[in-house]
């Protein structure tokens, strides 16, 4: 019996504690990201943003959450009930499980697996199911159109993202996220791979359905898109999932191109996790900045950008950087 406790139960309990230590701050971060977005966009518009609930509006996310929690969840007639209920849960769960592989420091990672990059890529690709299921199960044409757009958009941009990830892998020779971070000790990949990093960031905007690519929502034409039939906590789960997804993809970008938990300029006295959080916050600020600065793309232009601009560019990038790595002797095992 003691063996059972030591072998299985205590490790399980310990893992659950670690999971909670990641997920709870993350959910807090999601709540305050919504406030940060409103505040930042407010100041870019020369407004104040939310400033009534609590000091400087700091309690606004709690008030919003409470309001959504108290609302009734309406399931439309003709909706496919099971799918309708599962869809928002799936969206949030997928945004949360991705954090299992993100390294916060050389030892601080929940699961240091060999195929971390592929895992993140797979999880972010699965996000489309939450949206597709929601759109289809709602039995409403606006929701359905929104979800179809989103499916096409996410699948398109994933292709170029895959190629860009390959350029990073050419230099590291490992799919392990901690190895990728360690390989950036000399220089962040953002600098030698700048064009790739920019295309990756724009693809991330499209993948997370953010401005200027938020066609699935497009409130002006689709009254809110795939989640138009959802209310109360079901809507809140979508909302949380979307913002958690933003944070997750910002974390992925930080690990791939900005050295993850590595401290810049040898400032090691500040611990790694804080550096990772700072980099994620910087990327999230750009997410919000882009939303305030750019108008929305038209749908055909969005598809054109994905297939006719980004895909060829990233393909050429793969060939170019593979050549640089091979002839410059930067490829793993050649130094």
């Amino acid at each position: 019996m003691a063996e059972f406790w030591d072998g299985y139960l205590w490790p399980t309990v310990w893992t659950v504690i670690k999971v909670l230590a990641i997920v709870l701050p993350l959910l807090g971060g999601v709540a305050y990201l919504t406030l940060a977005e409103r505040k930042v966009i407010g100041s870019m518009h020369l407004r104040r943003g939310p400033n009534v609930v609590g000091l400087w509006g700091l309690l606004q996310p709690l008030a919003d959450g409470l309001k959504l929690f108290l609302k009734e969840i309406v399931i439309p007639t003709g909706a496919s009930r099971g799918v309708f209920i599962i869809a928002p849960m799936l969206t949030l769960i997928l945004a949360l499980i991705a954090w299992a592989v993100i390294p916060f420091s050389d030892t601080l990672v929940l699961s240091n697996i060999n195929v971390g990059v592929l895992y993140l890529f797979a999880v972010s690709g699965l996000g489309v199911y939450g949206i597709l299921m929601a759109g289809w199960a709602s039995n409403s044409k606006y929701a359905f159109l929104g979800s179809l757009r989103s499916a096409a958009q996410m699948v398109s941009y994933e292709v170029s993202m895959g190629f860009i990830i390959i350029t990073v892998l050419v230099f590291t020779g490992s799919l392990n996220l901690n190895d990728i971070v360690e390989a950036q000790r000399g220089m962040w990949y953002m600098f030698p791979l700048l064009p790739m990093a920019v295309i990756f960031f724009i693809s991330v905007l499209a993948e997370t359905n953010r401005h200027p690519f938020d066609l699935p929502e497009a409130e002006a034409e689709l009254v809110g898109g795939y989640n138009v039939e959802y209310g109360g906590m079901a809507f809140a789960l979508f909302f949380l999932g979307e913002y958690a997804n933003m944070i997750m993809m910002a974390g992925f970008t930080a690990v791939l191109f900005m050295g993850g938990w590595l401290a810049p300029f040898g400032m090691d006295f500040i611990p790694g996790p804080i550096w990772l959080i700072l980099k994620v916050c910087f990327l999230l600020f750009i997410f919000i900045w882009v939303r305030a600065a750019y108008p929305r793309y038209r749908y055909d232009q969005l598809m054109r950008l994905g297939w006719k601009v980004f895909l060829p560019t990233s393909l050429i990038g793969v060939i170019f950087y593979a050549g640089v790595a091979f002839y410059g002797g930067f490829a793993p095992g050649m130094q």
Partner: peptide
């Protein structure tokens, strides 16, 4: 694990979506 991730990326993430 590589095959597992590939199965999720290719079959769940791309083929089945289409």
């Amino acid at each position: 694990e590589f095959l597992a991730m590939l199965l999720v990326v290719v079959y769940c993430g791309a083929v089945t979506v289409l």
